[in-house]
Every structure is written in C-alpha cells, then in structure tokens.
Amino acid sequence: MEKANNAIVKVPEVTLAFWIIKIAATTLGETGGDAVSMSMNLGYLIGTIIFAAVFLVAVVAQMRSERFSPALYWVTIIATTTVGTTLADFVDRSLGIGYAGGSALLVFLLLTSLFIWYRAMGSVSVTTVSSSKAEVFYWVTIMFSQTLGTALGDWTADTAGLGYSGAALIFGGLLLALVIAYYATEIPRTLLFWAAFILTRPLGAVVGDFLDKPIANGGLAMSRYNASIALVAFILVCGSVFRQRPAEASH
C-alpha cells in the first residue's frame, strides 16, 4: 500500500490553482508550438518530432521520480500541449484531413484510451494513478486530449467562423457550465474532471491564437516569442504563489 501512496504523490491535487496553471500551460502550448513550427519555419512534422522527443524525456523523468515535483509535472504537461499543437496542425493541415476529420479521429483515440484504461485498471480517476501502468494510461490520455483540444479550437475559431474571441467565449461558457454541474449535480467527478481537462485545451488554443494573430484577423498581434515568454513568466509566478500538494490516493 505504501508503494501506491508514493506513486500518487506525483499527481497534483485538483484545485483552482491547478486549473489556472493548466489553462496558461495550454495557451503556452499553442504559442510555443506555433513559434517552432511556423515562426522558425521548421514545419509541423519537424516541430512534432522535436516536441515528441521532449515529451518522451519528460514522461520518463516524471515516471522515474519518486516524489511529486510540481515543476516536473508542469513541464510534462506543457510538453503535451506543444506536441499536441504541432501534431494536430500536421494531421489537419499537412495530411489534409481537415479540422472536422482531425477532431473526429482524436475523439475516437481519446475515448479508446479511456476505455482501455478503465477496462485495465477499473477506474480512470487521477486519484488512482498509483502504478507505472496507470501512469502510462494517464499520460497517453492527456496527450490525446491536448491534441484534440487544438483541433477543436482551430475548428471552432476558423471553420465555424466564430473567431478567436467568440470561440474563447464558447469554451469558457462550457467550462463555467461544468463548474455549476460540479456544485449543483451528482454527475461523477471523474467525468467532470476529464471534460474540463479536455475543454481547457481548445480554450488555450484560441487564446493563444488571439494573442499572436494579426489585428486584421482578430488577434492582438503579439509575437509568438513574446507571448510565450509572458506565459512562462505567469506560470512561474503561479507556481511560486500557489502551494501545490499531491493528490490523495484513492484505494
């Protein structure tokens, strides 16, 4: 039983600070991913390979760690958002599947990951991530959710014609609805967590695009580099101000 407790401390407690940092991290994933693939002109495929390598290194370090490290955890989360950004763009644009097709494919992969995780472990709650096997499912699921969020954000803002601010209001409203459901209904908390986790990614994607796209296209025309630096600074401040504790193990 002690081994389970040691494993679960690597996953943070889900609090308001968690969600604030999560949204900032997903926004950074958008601006950082675009900075490498577009501003540096490396392309989506090369960008994906670079960030996938960073993601694998971070996940291995996270899984080998014997204690909860907020810095390591959030570096791994940011790695999933950056590789999710470039991978989604590669699938949607370079492969020509389109936002709708890419979103449908990623929904299938995400649901399949959750289904296999549930069948193998009996729960998909983050409080039961108490073994290396569960950690693998956890990070694979997060990877799919981050990639899906990028595709959904781009589809809503561009194809659906809502623009960045309109899409941000949509996803922000959906997140608010989940908060209300958390306090006013008996909907399983695990379901609400994953729904919120998924929705924070498209919110971050459209906010990231809003920051760096030209004013003529509805953005603020910040450079991707400046936006990324500002977001890194914000995350560091939040990490210093808000004390993050490990989640309690569920047995």
Rank of each mutant, 00 (worst) to 15 (best):
T81Y: 06
G149E: 09
V129H: 06
Y73V: 00
I229N: 02
I187K: 01
N226E: 15
V54K: 02
L191M: 13
L111H: 00
T141H: 02
I23L: 14
L45M: 12
L111G: 05
S240M: 14
A227W: 10
T185Y: 02
L45Q: 06
G173M: 05
T48W: 07
L28M: 06
V232T: 12
V179I: 09
P70V: 06
G96D: 09
K10Y: 01
A167V: 09
A160Y: 10
F210N: 03
L87A: 15
I180A: 10
T86A: 08
L203V: 13
L28Q: 04
Y99W: 15
A184D: 11
S228G: 13
V232M: 12
V14E: 01
D34P: 06
Y182L: 14
G218E: 08
F137C: 11
S113H: 02
V75D: 02
V179N: 04
S130L: 03
G33P: 11
A120Y: 05
L211P: 08
F197Q: 05
I198W: 09
T27K: 01
S37Q: 04
G163V: 04
V207R: 01
A230Q: 09
G96C: 08
V9Y: 06
T86H: 08
V54N: 03
A205S: 14
L220V: 09
A181S: 13
E135F: 13
V59A: 07
A100E: 12
T190K: 04
D209R: 10
A168H: 00
F193V: 08
A7K: 09
F242G: 07
W155Q: 12
R64P: 03
M143A: 13
V11D: 01
D209F: 03
A233M: 14
K10M: 04
Q146S: 15
A4M: 11
I170H: 01
W74L: 05
L45K: 03
A249W: 13
P70F: 00
A181R: 00
S94P: 04
L178M: 08
F108R: 00
Q62V: 03
N217V: 09
D89K: 08
P188F: 03
T127F: 00
